[in-house]
Design a protein around this nucleic acid. Structure first.
Lengths: 143, 143
DNA sequence: ATAAAAAAGGATAAAAAAGTCTTTTATATT
DNA sequence: AATATAAAAGACTTTTTTATCCTTTTTTAT
């Protein structure tokens, strides 16, 4: 469904969201542990998200990654789009380039609904909105 | 969503379904052209589907691939499962191994519904049931 | 029998994705 | 100002996926 990169990205961003609710920053090492991902790999992914403005970072001692007000209101759809592009939202299930309403593949109509459901959910899900459940161990980001 | 291999597999199988409704067989070359796929690659994929019994084949002059009665009643879900396994039906959206009802990732509950929708559709879609629309150019398998 | 047609199979190549390592740059603290 | 810390950057390696090529085997029609 998502690329591995995107899976890690979402997990990392939700982890950071939780940690940065009270304004604190969190380092790569802690993130990697917190979401059980390869340290260098998630570092690279976060660099990218940072360049694109979806997470914030500060170098140096007591630095780390965090989400500002704006980023806390970004959605999972924003993250997915930045990492995987929007083929998941608009691509053809059978890989046809010109698949569309007027030239549909056999799965087009059904998958249109499904893709809309996915988009609807991801667009409605703000990065900051899982903090409570994560805090209370109702949701998990590793294993 | 699906691997490229699986996309080709589905397209090929639907193409063969259409051609073999009247009992005729179709060669690799024609299949590759019919679904606009690399010839050698789709050959490989069909070998695999053939070994697993989802398509039938006959060697020699006037041979080719076809679907018998049973295969015409197989479903898209069968094809997907054979090619991609069932991670699309049961895997965690965030790649967690132990994600489940009692230890869910933040996307679990929403994606459960989505995966069920996908499975419901793929399981209900018999390979032979698109023939009419393909014949009438209401559905397409290439470009 | 034989030639032609077609799938089966094995080996390899190319491309993309995933993951690792090392160096550089910024900055907070001392 | 010096130092230690932490992210940024980029090069590199490995693994997986996608694709190609070539030989062998099987089957059918002549």
């Amino acid at each position: 469904m998502f690329s591995k990169t995107c899976e890690y990205a979402i997990r990392a961003v939700l982890f950071i969201a939780q940690k940065s609710e009270d304004g604190s920053k969190v380092g790569i090492r802690e993130i990697a542990k917190g979401i059980d991902s390869p340290e260098h790999f998630i570092a690279k992914i976060l660099q990218d998200l940072s360049r694109k403005g979806l997470v914030q970072s500060q170098k140096g001692p007591s630095g780390g990654f965090y989400l500002d007000k704006t980023s806390l209101h970004a959605t999972l759809a924003d993250v997915v789009r930045v990492v995987d592009g929007d083929k998941i939202f608009s691509g053809c299930a059978l890989g046809l380039k010109q698949c569309s309403e007027i030239k549909p593949c056999p799965l087009h109509h059904e998958f249109k609904k499904i893709r809309e459901d996915i988009l609807r959910f991801l667009q409605s899900a703000k990065l900051g909105e899982f903090n409570r459940q994560l805090e209370q161990d109702l949701f998990f980001l590793k294993r």
